[in-house]
Design a protein around this nucleic acid. Structure first.
Lengths: 217, 217
DNA sequence: TACGCTCTGTGATCCTCTTCACAGAATACC
DNA sequence: GGTATTCTGTGAAGAGGATCACAGAGCGTA
């Protein structure tokens, strides 16, 4: 199984961005600031220009599942934009970030003038659904070690070093901090990664891919 | 937590259907027939007119997760329609069924003529994403008994009797047949359901709702 | 430099679900 | 009607994570 099968590409948004451009307003977030909470009412569609954002969902119990880290160029917030209602996730700035956004009314109007915008948005929706579908499959079918391998590979796709505590990583995988620690220690002993406080350096990507694929339940 | 919070409504498709109507071709499936397999290439968008279909995803190991049973009026197949590529799930007819479908090219053309069609499709996408988001949350945050309660309530929403073996139900919840059997037996002893071979009759919906909500991890 | 906080590693125990096994009941089919 | 098949219920054993507990290491900061 190739890596691209796992990394659904949400980055080819140039066409979409140029189509959106005229409808966008600007916005800045400082590090740690929350853009919106799960269950907020808000129908804006966003584009991240600079910085990094975290997408997460929260259980009533307070438990948190981190879904993704958004990089510049990402378009997000489609669910409540396409189907007005509550937000299904929380978006929080990991660092100071600059974004732009469009309101629903503006875009509906833009779509009537330019049908290409509509089909670009539909394709965006299709890609996001593919990505969500894979998240669900992974969560159901992959054991914790494979999920951890998948997330580690994903998070290190642009840089072999991941700046994240093991506790944060555990929130991505949906397991306890202790289990992440044990698995990472095994990987360190196997020469797959190098560990230090708050950092994981990936040494052997293909080894991790094997780990990810070899243990399907 | 209300039940409607759980049952994302995908049924309000009258507007969409009337907009689609002119672009549709007909199709029939006999009981047990597969419309398409996961990973097939196919870019059609479907509407179910009569019958019942099962949506499921399969792991490489052969394990299966059932996602939904589609009822007449349901529109489905959006992912590969909006973002051409492989199917993310398998669709199989549970009984003899009649459906209609549109090809991507036909609809893109239809959208340029009628912008309302585009926004109806976007809303459909938004609703489907909401539904997927909830599936993922439930899978991660709810323990097996709560998930079973949620699925049982969902499957019995139009008829208090569910015609399904415990093994099939287990495929919906993502646990073993034995665990489903044990939980259902507990529920029977508590007066929540009535059990017979291949059937589950729900006696106490609010009791099941409590079960669903009371055990979040 | 000393103190305090956060992060990491790991043992021990508990708990839940899976796996395996099997028996009895219901249904389908000769 | 009798036999085979499928479904259900349940016990017993096993595995894999969660939880609890704690110690040491790294880092910020007073």
């Amino acid at each position: 199984m190739t890596e691209s099968h796992y990394d659904v590409d949400l980055g080819e948004t140039d066409t979409l961005l140029s189509l959106l451009a005229e409808n966008l307003e600007e916005l800045r977030l400082s590090a740690g600031e929350t853009l919106f909470e799960q269950d907020d009412f808000d129908d804006r569609l966003f584009v991240l220009d600079t910085g990094e954002l975290e997408v997460s969902v929260l259980a009533a119990s307070g438990r948190k599942l981190s879904l993704n880290r958004l990089q510049p160029g990402s378009v997000f917030g489609e669910i409540a934009f396409f189907d007005p209602g509550r937000r299904t996730a929380r978006i929080k700035a990991l660092v100071s970030s600059r974004l732009r956004f469009a309101r629903q009314a503006a875009l509906l109007e833009g779509m009537t003038r330019n049908p290409k915008l509509a089909s670009a948005l539909l394709q965006l929706a299709g890609r996001r659904m593919r990505w969500m579908s894979r998240q669900l499959e992974d969560q159901v079918f992959l054991p914790p070690e494979s999920r951890l391998a998948a997330k580690t590979l994903h998070l290190s796709r642009s840089d072999s070093e991941i700046a994240m505590s093991q506790a944060q990583l555990a929130d991505y995988v949906g397991v306890t901090r202790e289990l992440v620690s044990r698995i990472l220690s095994d990987w360190r002993r196997a020469g797959l990664v190098e560990l230090s406080r708050g950092r994981i350096r990936v040494l052997d990507r293909s080894g991790l891919m094997e780990t990810r694929d070899s243990e399907e339940v």
